[in-house]
Amino acid sequence: MTHIVLALGFLLVCIGFWGLMTRKEVFRLIISFSLLDTGVHVIMVGIGYVRTGTAPIFDEALAVAGAVGKVVDPVPSALVLTAIVIGLAVTALMLSFAIRLHASRGSLAVDDMKELKW
């Protein structure tokens, strides 16, 4: 199961990166970027998962003593949550930049973004 998740994550990352490399328009770049980000999040979850574990919530089924061996480690999930939030913020900012860029230059084509170079 974790292998499938990991493979899926890597696939997403690859798709995202492929998009980033080949698409010629800023919005598509942003979408690709989101895909890449999601792929990373999936990988993180995949790595953190313990096959036979249970949810890390203390109740009747899970005593405090000996809990470490039974539960799925909660930390990666927490990390992913945070990362998703941050990724959202970045995506939002990127989108706003794209809008502003379109407003001021009238184009979102990647090939038009060449004023700054060398």
Partner: peptide, 26 residues
């Protein structure tokens, strides 16, 4: 326009860096 352009370039680079960082951390 130049500053937005630079900003987007910066964000893409920063995004790739973050991805690497996250995977590394996990």
């Amino acid at each position: 326009a130049n500053s937005y352009e630079a900003g987007i370039k910066l964000m893409v680079a920063g995004g790739i860096a973050s991805a690497l960082f996250l995977i590394g951390v996990v």
